[in-house]
Design a protein around this nucleic acid. Sequence first.
DNA 1: GCCAACGTTGGC
DNA 2: GCCAACGTTGGC
Length: 159
Amino acid sequence: MSRSRNYWLVKTEEDIYPITKLKKDKVTQWTDVRNFEARKHLLAMKRGDKLLIYHSNASPSGIAGLGVILREAYPDPGQFDRESEYFDEKATKDSPRWFAPDVKFLSEFKNKLTLEELRAHRELKNMVLFKRSRLSVQPVTAEEFEFVLSLASVSRQAH
DNA sequence: GCCAACGTTGGC
DNA sequence: GCCAACGTTGGC
C-alpha cells in the first residue's frame, strides 16, 4: 500500500539562505533546526514530499517558492562540530539529537506570497503559520498546498 | 530596534 | 513536575 504524499512549510531567513541560493545550489542540506517539534516534522518527511519555502525576517515575509524532499532526514553534521554555532554537546554519533533532510529546488514564485496576502484568504485561515508563528518546520494540508499554488500562478499571470 | 509570543532550562 | 526566568523568533 502506498502512502500519500505530505506537504510542509519550512522557514529560512531571507538574508541567510534565500530561495535564489537554493535555486543555484539545486540541492541543499536543510540543517540547523534546533527545536523539538520542528525535528519531529523533519523526521516525518518522506522522499517526494513537497515544501513551501517561506522567507522569514524579510520585508515583507512570505512564501517564495517550492522544494521537494530528495533524501530523508539523517544526522545534522553541525551538532558534532565544536566550531559550529549549532554544536550540541549532548549529541553523539551513536545518539544524534538533530536531523536534516536534503531539499531539492523546484520553483521560485515570480512574486512572493506575503503573510498579509496569505492571511486574507479564508481557505488558509487554519494554517499552522498563523497559529504557531515561531515553528520553523510545519505541516500543511493538501488543500492548503493546492490553494497556495493557485495563488502563485495568479501572481505569475499578473506579469 | 522593539517587543510579544512562546519554547527551553533549571531550581525547587 | 511545576513554573519563573531566560533566550530566541520573527513581524513590524
